[in-house]
Amino acid sequence: MSTNEPTDDAPPSPPAPSPASADEATPDARPQSTRDDTPPADASPSAEPSVEPKLNIDDLHFWYSDNHALQGITMDVQPNKVTALIGPSGCGKSTLLRCLNRMNELIQGTTLEGTILVDGQDIYAEDTDPVMVRRRVGMVFQKPNPFPKTIYKNVAWGAEINGYTGDVDALVERSLRQAALWDEVKDQLHTSALNLSGGQQQRLCIARTLAVQPDVVLMDEPASALDPIATSKVEETITELKKDYTIVIVTHNMQQASRISDETAFLYMGRLVEMNPTDELFTRPEKDRTEAYVTGRFG
């Protein structure tokens, strides 16, 4: 359909005059005191307004052995926003997401080039530790996959292994409240998480991720395995969460992207075609291919 090849304008330059302003919650809005395992005393989280992008991705290339899955992605992700990654199957959106917390390096035979900065720090630098990256950048997967343990242990485990010294009970409650699951499970915290419904399991996985207190939460089609009611619950949760977190979400569902995201990036065949504020991208797409995709003419 579309004649405009995304390869023509590489590297794609998303012209996003981001409306990131101070009325959005600043990163220090949530309690930092609980992350007492790492920060030195001179950490001053509230020093600057959050105009700097949370994530900078610069000329990112990724290969699964010979398959060149990402071909030079450059984009920024704004703090305390929901950024949606959309595109047809195999366009590389999940791969891109998994590059953001170094999950892809668990797959053997993969190669990565380019840089990804979180708060200005290169997460692929020689001396950067993947565990530290994943504590900062959490992830929720497509299929709800709670550990075969109790609800309480599911939430507490990540904090425990990361040396959390605070009140674990309070942390579990706060995380479950943030994931809008507390009221449903508060009387069965010590029963198996596998007894929960699919939607509850997914919100438990969100709570589990929040308990580690990341800055960024990545979500890989978090509602695709859920029914409509559970989906809307998860979506509400996501909208709530952006007050405190930067969220990057992969979705194949364009209604979902337009409902919950502030910015949307459209990927096609391993390249970023267009990245813009969501309402702009859906109503006035710059590229023909984006328009073709969002209007359902292909994909």
């Binding site: 790492t38 700097e52 979180v118 200005g120 720090q121 630098a125 001396d127 990256v133």
Partner: peptide
């Protein structure tokens, strides 16, 4: 970016703590 140690809510050496290895 690596030198910008004061930016962001966390100090820069945060990510370099060797835990995985």
């Amino acid at each position: 970016a690596d030198n910008e140690t004061t930016r962001g809510p966390r100090p820069a050496d945060d990510l370099r703590q060797q835990v995985y290895d």
